[in-house]
Design a protein around this nucleic acid. Structure first.
Length: 506
DNA sequence: CTATGGCTAAACAGAC
DNA sequence: AGTCTGTTTAGCCATA
């Protein structure tokens, strides 16, 4: 996911730490980010609506006659293209709004930390964008885009600038052509100061938004926003290409595999709670219940980080024991996933064995029943039986927490919970999210792209707008962290992942 | 660097 | 004899 272009929240935080900014200034930046997120949400809503419309049309078609698969695909592609247009437009808006005043101000000295090459590139991009826009304005404005943008013009937020775009284009010639000035309002991010005439605006711009720490920081943030959006745009373009390619090369439609609910966040959540002694839900109970889409679980964040893949070999990081709430929730919630994907569950054998035993009505199982639980619950354990069965036996013998009880029918295994809790807790340090991604990508370089794709595909179909919002939210969260004290604990690292917006199921 | 935990492999024994 | 169950040891790796 993270390309060299993208800057992680941690890096962002680092950048911001170089600045001397007051909490108020940071607050301003945060507000700005939130406003941008709002815009992302608008995009998302619009897209969702398009999907709903499409769905409605499909239903009608179904009633009317046979649905044409080609038509559906074509419609989906049309929507994808519309989305791309919106994103492109959005990018242009952002570039113009947040960055165009920079060049004049920066000719004197470069702000600390800003690489000249970076700025040059930035200027070039913004200049290109401006030229592009001008050219388009001089010729004919593309009607579909305007239409699309008007589609959600009723939303609030002080960064809604679709109308101003129009206004700009017409008023630019007469009123000094400043993209930061529209409708008598200063369009510098987070400013919104009102001016009667263009001259007073210019005065304001030079005094309030001169080259200082604050403006530089805002500029940086805007750069990040633009970068994120560009990334997103690139991704959506790629997706569109894939869709088009798919339509040309008709292959068998791959069945979307169930995706795991974010385990990392679960664990983080679990850290703040007392370890439970019994499972909250038994697997047998959930087995009879109709399977619900995982994304519909309201309390669950939607970031999905698979820890290993089929034939990836053993993973070394196991989330063990202390996090058994997370564990049984993970197993229950990702039941379908574990049953369809040959993914090794990220728990130790000991934890799994305990889970198996505790799920049984009598809280005791024979060795064979434990085996059965493993194969029943995880596809992964339907292969290499000799290996994992040996490991199960080995664990049963090795750990004092497993107690063998002689029965009339033979022997059963039980769990000594006290002994189990005594075991040394596993600490998860740093940001679990990042660490997890890093470790999983780093373990097998040859599979990194596959894994990246897996992480990527965990995002909802067409959920690109929400993705943009997520990254922005992470950005905002980084800002937020910077505003609060720096002595955050382990748990706070996952805040951004926890706050990621739930994505719509299409 | 050391200790510890976890996984895999394997040898071995006893029961069935 | 072959399989299952259970115990133990050893080596490797990752992490604290």
């Amino acid at each position: 996911m993270i390309t060299p272009q993208a800057i992680t929240p941690q890096q962002m935080q680092q950048i911001l730490q170089q600045q001397v900014l007051s909490p108020q200034q940071l607050q301003l930046l945060l507000q700005q980010q939130q406003a941008l997120m709002l815009q992302q949400q608008q995009l998302q809503e619009f897209y969702k609506k398009q999907q709903e419309d499409l769905h409605l049309q499909l239903l009608q078609q179904r009633h009317a006659g046979k649905p044409s698969k080609e038509q559906i695909m074509a419609q989906q592609m049309a929507i994808q293209q519309q989305l791309l247009s919106i994103q492109q437009q959005h990018l242009l808006n952002l570039q113009r709004q947040g960055l165009l005043s920079v060049p004049s101000a920066l000719t004197s000295t470069l702000a600390q930390g800003l690489i000249p090459a970076e700025l040059q590139q930035l200027w070039k991009e913004t200049a290109d964008a401006r030229q592009e826009e001008k050219r388009r304005g001089d010729k004919s404005p593309s009607p579909p885009k305007t239409q699309i943008l008007n589609h959600h013009s009723s939303t609030n937020g002080h960064h809604v600038h679709r109308e101003s775009r129009h206004h700009c284009r017409h008023s630019n010639r007469s009123q000094g052509a400043h993209p930061l000035y529209s409708h008598g309002v200063c369009k510098w991010p987070g400013c919104d100061a009102v001016f009667g005439d263009f001259q007073s605006f210019l005065k304001h711009l030079n005094s309030e938004h001169a080259l200082d720490d604050k403006s530089t920081a805002q500029c940086r943030v805007q750069m990040q926003v633009v970068q994120q959006l560009e990334l997103q745009l690139a991704k959506d373009k790629e997706r569109l290409q894939a869709m088009m390619a798919h339509l040309h090369v008709k292959s068998t439609e791959p069945k979307p595999a169930p995706q795991p609910v974010n385990l990392v966040s679960n664990l983080t959540l679990a850290k703040a709670t007392i370890p439970k002694t019994s499972p909250s839900m038994s697997l047998s109970q959930s087995a009879t219940a109709p399977s619900t889409p995982l994304t519909s679980l309201p309390q669950m964040p939607s970031v999905i980080i698979p820890t290993s893949l089929h034939s990836m070999g053993p993973i070394r990081k196991r989330y063990s024991d202390k996090y058994n709430i997370a564990m049984d929730q993970d197993i229950v919630q990702n039941k379908e996933f574990y049953l369809s994907a040959e993914v090794r569950p990220p728990f130790t054998y000991a934890a799994l064995i305990r889970q198996a035993i505790l799920e049984s009505p009598e809280k005791q199982l024979t060795l064979n029943e434990i085996y059965n639980w493993f194969t029943r619950t995880f596809v992964y354990f339907r292969r290499n039986a000799a290996t994992w069965k040996n490991a199960v036996r080995h664990n049963l013998s090795l750990h004092k927490c497993f107690v063998r009880v002689e029965n009339v029918k033979g022997a059963v295994w039980t769990v000594d919970e006290l002994e189990f809790q005594k075991r040394r807790p596993q600490k998860i340090t740093g940001s679990p999210l990042v660490k997890n991604i890093q470790s999983s990508l780093g373990q097998n370089p040859t599979l990194s792209s596959l894994q990246a794709a897996m992480v990527d595909s965990s995002l909802p179909l067409y959920g690109s707008a929400s993705m943009g919002a997520s990254s922005l939210k992470a950005l905002a969260s980084a800002l937020h962290e910077d505003m609060s004290s720096h002595d955050h604990d382990e748990g706070s690292h996952s805040d951004s992942s926890l706050e990621l917006s739930p994505v719509p199921t299409l």
